[in-house]
Design a protein around this nucleic acid. Sequence first.
DNA 1: AGATGGAGTTGCTACGTTTTAATCAAGGTC
DNA 2: GACCTTGATTAAAACGTAGCAACTCCATCT
Lengths: 348, 348
Amino acid sequence: MSIDGWDEAPAGATRPSPSIKDVAALAGVSPGTVSNVLNRPEKVAGATRDRVESAIRELGFVRHGSASTLRAGHSRTIGLSVIDIGNPFFTDVAAGVEDLASERGYAVILGNSSGSRVKEERNLLVFAEQRVRGVLITPSDQDPIRLDRLRERGISVVLVDHPAERPDQCAVAVNDVTGGAMAVEHLLAGGADRVAYVTGPAAMRQCQDRRRGAERALAAAGRDPRDLREVAMPAMTAAAGQQAAEKLLAQDVLPDALFCANDLLALGVLRGLLQAGVRVPEEVSLIGYDDIDFASASTVSLSSIRQPTYQLGRAATELLLDECDNPDTHAHQQIMFQPDLVVRESTR
Amino acid sequence: MSIDGWDEAPAGATRPSPSIKDVAALAGVSPGTVSNVLNRPEKVAGATRDRVESAIRELGFVRHGSASTLRAGHSRTIGLSVIDIGNPFFTDVAAGVEDLASERGYAVILGNSSGSRVKEERNLLVFAEQRVRGVLITPSDQDPIRLDRLRERGISVVLVDHPAERPDQCAVAVNDVTGGAMAVEHLLAGGADRVAYVTGPAAMRQCQDRRRGAERALAAAGRDPRDLREVAMPAMTAAAGQQAAEKLLAQDVLPDALFCANDLLALGVLRGLLQAGVRVPEEVSLIGYDDIDFASASTVSLSSIRQPTYQLGRAATELLLDECDNPDTHAHQQIMFQPDLVVRESTR
DNA sequence: AGATGGAGTTGCTACGTTTTAATCAAGGTC
DNA sequence: GACCTTGATTAAAACGTAGCAACTCCATCT
């Protein structure tokens, strides 16, 4: 009797989800047969299968994942823990993970640690509670303990964008030392004299390795690696980059070349420098890392180090699922990709 | 006997996860008491609680989420389905969702539909299988059917960035008609004559509403709304924007003002125009939508329409959790935020 | 002393599924 | 006709937890 007729759809009528038993009753078979149709369809006769399948459709049956997990002892779910989902680098990795996982019938639970150890820990706890089949993680620091706790539980772990800490684990990474060296080599080739490194939290391996590469490039050019000035920020975001620019500008002498540990930092630095009237690349050469999509769209398009990001996610997932599905034949692997230099306007 | 000593950690020794029974045995209580410590700690005496808690720590017990969900009939999990996690707009929404959800002890399963109905459907299936407590979704089209199927199962649904389709549901949105009008008003105020609208898939409500706003602004200025030229792309990404620019450049006469349905499109269009030597804003005024972080960092910083993105996610989660936790007293709400105009360099 | 009450704890059952072993029917072989 | 084989189906027993009803203490009140 309502004006608009919405009430024809029984709003609060939440009949309980039909179970495998209801399907079995409707199809005139036993619950076990329905389970077979779901999990081993080749084991059941064509006619029966059709009957069960149409019963499933008719009732709108959806398998109860929790019951399934409980009984089977494992789920069809993997956990992915990243440091900053706001960073396009990780978004691309996640895309690679999700694509392959869903091809193989796995669902992905995404956890964002925001660089915080506490949140990372909480995400791992959620993964453990959900009894995920495996975990992909880009650790926010070097502490290996928590991951062993997962493995003890039978949860496979693959490190993403992080080299293996031990031979008995899988890992997929990109050579950050090489990348850092490439970046600084390029700056030096452009005539850089005073090079500074704008980086994130000291605990992050990526930051350390890129620094090592930078120092190596300086040494190779006959310079003292200790000449490398460093501006470390607590986060690797554009906002942090802008603050880094302010720090740099407050110093007596401005470096003439900046290597930023990722593109977000670089974009922030770029904005800060331009706002202060510093010309890029004429006064300061600037190179970032990751080659995110936005690097080529910025005010002064950003030179950067490209990583095979999507491939990174896919490869890591491939290793993880192999370890899950073939635990006996699985051989642990460490895959190391190589980065590329992308030259644009921000460097001389 | 290995050289490096790694084998001290028993690699493959995956002892089964301890259950509530093991904890009970160690603490010398019944399994029911352990369950009480976990779920109703105030019901159990301090000394007993301590004993149980230290047993939990000692064994490294982690609650089996699936068993809990199965028995309790519902999980502590919500599903979030977005159209494009590569778009910073949705990343910010997701941040708002995750923050509030984890404050309230809920885990978030993130699903990315990439604008594909098939993937969206698959995500909803995963949510249903996981028996999530509720679903937050930015629908990729206008079809309400699937959501009713969820509600019938007792899964609450809140629409995000989408107005309610019916009075018996919660929704959180931003007024896109107003936003579209703001954008085109601003273009007209800058002296725009031939305005074009660069948009995404026609089925997307956001695109339709922003267009309606644009037409309204034209009409209000005494112009014929049918003058609004339209370039529709299949995706709302920077790559699609660049293609849109090519399309525009191939036409006889270039518009002198462009309104893009989001910032990614706008950044792509901007790149395409600049590469072709078109000056922005002198020859073409350009405005985007969403005011993502990168809008202010682009070659020519982008004028845009700002939305309270993080708040959008938080508010939607607030409504959803209220509906889940207080189903009796819950009153369905439709929240409509208002957008803001942000003027930068890309418009006259 | 006996009854009452409350706090703390326990035993039991059910949740929906998977899986193993058992059952059954139909057909084939000697 | 007895026996085996093959293929299809089923009955029944778990999996780990939540939550209720029942029970045990022990202190307090009549």
